[in-house]
Nucleic acid binder design. Structure first.
Lengths: 155, 155
DNA sequence: TTCGCTGCAAATCCTTTGCATGATT
DNA sequence: AATCATGCAAAGGATTTGCAGCGAA
C-alpha cells in the first residue's frame, strides 16, 4: 500500500534529506493503520526503536508528511488531533470516513458507496466547487449498542 | 428561533443561576448565526455591552451551553475552535453542514436533502447505530472559484 | 444568607520555534 | 564541505483552574 520508497523519492525531489527519524515515523503510521494515532502516541512508538527521538521532530515530520500528502489529520473534538496514513484523494489508502462511538470512543473507518455522491447535496445556487469532503458519524458501535440494550441504560 | 427563556428554564432546572453574562453570551451567539464565532470573538462581542466580562467566563459558559445542547462546536482545523447556535438534532436551528473555502476560508452553512440519508452509507455489517453526523465540504466558493479561473492560478 | 458564579492570574496542555550540534548528500 | 535536520529548552497560544470576592435565589 505505502512504502518508504515513495517518501524517499518525494524528499529527494524537494532537496530534503532522508533521515532515520522520518522513515521511522512513516513506518509507525503505516503499521498503525486505522489506529488514529496522536502525536504523543507516535512519539512513544518511535521511541521504542529509536530512544533519542525528540517530540519536536515528530511534530515537524508530521507537518512534512501532511504537506507531502502521505498522511491525514483527523480531529474528533475529543481534545486530541490524530493522524493516519493515506491521502484525502484516496491515492494512497482509501478515501474513507469515520464512525465514532460515543460510549467507548472507538474510531472505525468505513468506505461507503453513497458517500461519493455527496457533492450533489450542495444546492447548485451556492456555486461551490467541491474539492474534498469529510464525514464523521457519531453513535454506538455494535459492542456498546448491544451492551446498552442489555443494561437498559442508553445515555 | 431561540430565546433566552429556554436558557433560563434549563438553568433553573439544574439549580444553576441565570446571570447577565450567560444571557449575553447566548445572545451574541444567537445574533451571530452562521458567523461561526471563536471564543475570543465571543469575548470581544460581549465586552461591547459588558466590559467587565472575563475570558474565563466565556469559556465556562461555552462549556455550559454545549452541555445544555444550545450550541455546537465546529472545528475546521484552521487553529480555531468555533461555536454556533443550534443543537445537532436540529431542534433549535437546522441540522446543517459546512462548506469551507480553501482560498478565502469563508464558512457557509447549507442544508442538503440527501445528507439526511447518510446513515445508510454505513455498511450493515458494522452494526453501527448512527446517532448523529457531521459533514464538511472543502473547495472553492463561487467568488474564489471565479477569481481563480480568471487569474488562472488555481492552487 | 447561601451557594453558585465571576474576574483575575497562574497553571496546564499541546504545539511551535531558536539555536547549537549532528547527520545526510 | 555544505546544508539540512535534530534535540533540547524556551516560547507561544488556547483553554482550564484556584481562589477570594460578588451576586442571584
Amino acid at each position: 500500500m505505502i512504502d518508504t520508497d515513495y517518501l524517499k523519492k518525494a524528499l529527494k525531489e524537494k532537496g530534503l534529506k532522508v533521515t532515520k527519524q522520518r522513515v521511522l515515523i512513516l513506518q509507525v503510521l503505516a503499521n498503525g493503520f486505522d489506529k488514529h494515532l496522536t502525536a504523543e502516541e507516535i512519539y512513544q512508538l518511535v521511541k521504542v526503536g529509536y530512544p533519542d527521538i525528540g517530540l519536536a521532530t515528530v511534530y515537524r515530520t508530521i507537518q512534512l508528511l501532511l504537506e507531502l500528502n502521505l498522511i491525514n489529520r483527523i480531529n474528533l473534538d475529543d481534545g486530541y488531533v490524530r493522524y493516519e496514513i493515506g491521502d484525502k484523494k484516496g491515492t494512497i489508502g482509501q478515501h474513507h470516513h469515520h464512525l465514532i462511538c460515543l460510549k467507548c470512543k472507538k474510531i472505525t473507518s468505513f468506505e461507503g458507496e453513497l458517500v461519493n455522491n455527496i457533492g450533489r447535496c450542495v444546492p447548485v445556487s451556492y456555486n461551490f466547487e467541491v474539492n474534498d469532503y469529510e464525514v464523521k458519524l457519531y453513535g454506538y458501535c455494535s459492542e456498546c449498542s448491544t451492551k446498552s440494550k442489555l443494561e437498559n441504560n442508553v445515555p
